[in-house]
Every structure is written in C-alpha cells, then in structure tokens.
C-alpha cells in the first residue's frame, strides 16, 4: 500500500470530481465556471464535515473497464426481462432469497462498486456488507431453486472480478489471478 496521504491532498480526487460535476451542470468551460467550481466544491466539502476520504489505491484499466460496463449493461437487460416475465407469467407473490456471497476485494471502494452494481440489476439488492467476515448479503428475486441461488452467487463473484480487473489495486488483482489459477 502507498504511504498515507496526509492533509489537504487526500481531498484532491473528490474535489476534482465535484468541479467536474459543477462544470457539467453549467455546461460551460469559460474560466468563471471552473474557478467558482473550485470554490463551491471546497465549500461543499468543508460544510459537509465528513471524515477524510480513503486514499485511492486502484489503477484504471480502460479496456477492462469497458468489459465490466458491457457485462453490467447486458445483465441489466437480461434480468429486466427475467423479472418482467416473472411478473407477467406468474404474478402475485414470488419466491426470493437472501444469499450470502464470499467476497475477496479489500478496498472499501471496490466493495461498494460491486455491491451497487449488483443492486442496479433488477431483482437483486445488496442488502448488507459484512467486511469483517468478508461477506456480501444479496437479496435475489425471482429465486425458486437451489440452482438459481448458485447462479446469483456466481453472478456476484463475476461482477466483483470484473470490477477488480477494471479499477482494482495491483494487490487485489494479483489475489484474483492467483485464485483463478488454483481452480
């Protein structure tokens, strides 16, 4: 891990993000907008009084990012169809299940992206994250059989791997690759 960034520098990524949001909102890049953006972003961070963000440890790998996004978008469609079919075909109350999935990523950011990707797909909600024991609890729908539980579990693991490949730290990436070799 990199040495802890201290002081104001740790806020820099978040500040940049906020300035980007600001510029996009105004839809203009005349000097006035980014400059006020910096002031507003700093003010927002200061007034929010939140704890300092974690240092970024990940690396951006553009190709793999595309793979991740593509996979996710595909999954969005397929599960949307599944859920709709469930509603139209069966209607009424259907079976759902709370599934516990073991996770491997260490950084909180990666876990979050994973959990939220899962939640994005229709029918699935990441309910809780137990970081101490390395588990993600996902509520899936529709689930009627043990096989579908396994499908969901595999889906979560796959998405996690894609996320780590796309933006994970080298350390996380090595862990994944070693594990897959062992299989």
């Amino acid at each position: 891990m990199r040495p802890n960034k201290t002081g104001a520098l740790a806020w820099l990524p978040e500040l940049c993000w906020l300035v980007v949001v600001w510029v996009l909102l105004w839809g203009s890049v005349s000097p006035l907008v980014p400059l006020t953006g910096i002031a507003i972003a700093a003010a927002a961070l200061w007034t929010a009084r939140l704890p300092r963000p974690a240092p970024l440890t990940g690396r951006l790998r553009p190709v793999r990012l595309l793979v991740y996004v593509g996979d996710l978008v595909g999954e969005l469609f397929s599960s949307a169809v599944q859920v709709s079919w469930q509603a139209i075909r069966y209607g009424g109350p259907a079976g759902g299940a709370l599934v516990s999935v073991p996770i491997r990523a260490h950084s909180g950011g990666l876990l979050l992206v994973t959990a939220n990707s899962v939640s994005l797909t229709p029918g699935n909600v990441a309910v809780e994250l137990d970081r101490e024991n390395g588990r993600l609890f996902v509520h899936g729908f529709p689930i009627r059989s043990e096989r579908e539980v396994e499908d969901l579990r595999r889906f979560v693991v796959r998405i996690e791997a894609r996320v780590i490949r796309a933006v994970g730290s080298p350390q996380d990436l090595r862990a994944i690759e070693q594990e897959e070799k062992r299989r």
Binding site: V21, W22, I40, A44, T47, A48
Partner: peptide, 11 residues
Amino acid sequence: VVPTALVLSAY
C-alpha cells in the same frame, strides 16, 4: 453522495 448533493444544491 453528500458532497455532490451539496454542489448540486449550490448550482
């Protein structure tokens, strides 16, 4: 979300 929401509110 919070800092972004604050920036949005300022906008």
